[in-house]
Amino acid sequence: MSNPAGRFEPTRAEAVDDGWGTIEEALPPLETTVQPEPARSIISRNKSPDISFDQSINPYRGCEHGCIYCYARPSHGYLNLSPGLDFETRLFYKADAARLLEQELSAKNYRCSPITIGANTDPYQPIEREYRVTRSIIEVLAKRRHPFSIITKSAMIERDIDLLAPLAKDNLVYTLVSVTTLDNDIKRTLEPRTASPAARLRAIRSLSSAGIPVGVMIAPVIPVLTDAELEKIIEAAAAAGARSAGYVLLRLPYELKDLFREWLDEHEPLKAKHVWSRLHDMRGGRDNDPRWGHRQRGEGQYADLLAQRFAAACMRYGLKHRERFVHNTALFVAGSAASGGESRQMSLL
């Protein structure tokens, strides 16, 4: 994995042999740093027709999991950092997340709408064990009886079953566990610091056993590398207790396409040409297609075949296809009522 400059940087650095042989020396190990990120708000909003939610919270910026395909990598460029190794090692946490969430939910003009936790980076990446930002957010949402969903590829979600299970009884929470591959060898290089496929299936089983609705998200589907596993993943997830399934075709926005090309050349050189050929067939001849209505699924014969295989597998194993979970918004405790007393801010009237 390299560490190229972000697309907003005015300069580029390149290693050049100065005749002293230093270019051949191994670079020192890159240490992971974690910093608080000051934020004025915690809830992000979108109007994308491709996404089933309009509110989301991302407890962390950057992700220790190191998934080479992560579409959030280019966002590190907004911090003048690289989408490469910086994204995996220069991490930021929303230290004030719980307070900001309380503040935003208390606003007089706030209207309750389901919130998705982890739409960008994983809310249960390894640093959550220490910083517990995700758990603090869930605690606020639980107190407010606010509906939400969680997307993760980590088995750490099992830690919070004590909070999630009571909420599930009132249709306040829905969970999605991402399973990209069942092959441990592919997983080790594709998403090196994520939970094993077996651990993710165990998490699905634990959530389901606790009465928490859970689905499997097969994302991304990578042509040639993982697309053949589509039916096997759906079968395994259904056996573990998943009730729904979804998938997203590999997306390669901005600098990500170059990082993925680098990864392919290093780890799958014999398949690289075939991967790009198949991807280009589904992306109108390009590395990436950002158009709404196309970016999640692709187009063309192979994309249509993938969609047909997915629908058939869901039917065969009894999973709901593209389930639109209906969150309960009627229980939301608005304004200062959540504290059980008067607002700490006195009225001007």
Score class of each variant (00 low, 15 high):
97 A>Q: 03
195 A>W: 00
345 Q>V: 15
130 E>Y: 06
176 L>H: 13
195 A>R: 03
318 G>A: 03
204 I>Q: 10
167 L>F: 01
84 G>P: 04
14 E>L: 13
253 P>V: 11
322 R>F: 01
62 G>H: 10
59 P>M: 10
239 A>V: 13
224 V>N: 06
333 V>N: 12
278 R>G: 00
54 D>V: 03
283 R>A: 09
109 N>L: 08
56 S>M: 13
4 P>S: 07
202 R>M: 09
230 L>M: 15
218 I>Q: 01
72 A>V: 10
37 E>N: 04
323 E>P: 00
342 E>G: 06
162 D>G: 08
323 E>G: 02
212 I>K: 07
142 A>F: 05
57 I>C: 05
102 E>W: 02
104 E>Y: 04
204 I>T: 12
144 R>N: 13
1 M>Y: 03
197 P>I: 12
23 I>P: 00
203 A>M: 10
215 G>E: 04
5 A>K: 11
195 A>S: 15
3 N>T: 06
118 G>M: 04
305 L>P: 00
57 I>F: 04
27 L>F: 12
212 I>E: 05
84 G>V: 08
223 P>E: 08
338 A>L: 06
219 A>W: 02
144 R>Y: 06
275 V>N: 00
294 H>V: 11
154 S>K: 08
3 N>Q: 03
6 G>L: 02
247 Y>V: 01
117 I>S: 02
175 T>P: 09
265 D>S: 12
250 L>M: 07
156 M>T: 04
110 Y>W: 10
288 N>F: 15
321 H>Y: 14
34 V>Y: 05
48 S>Q: 14
96 D>G: 01
121 T>C: 11
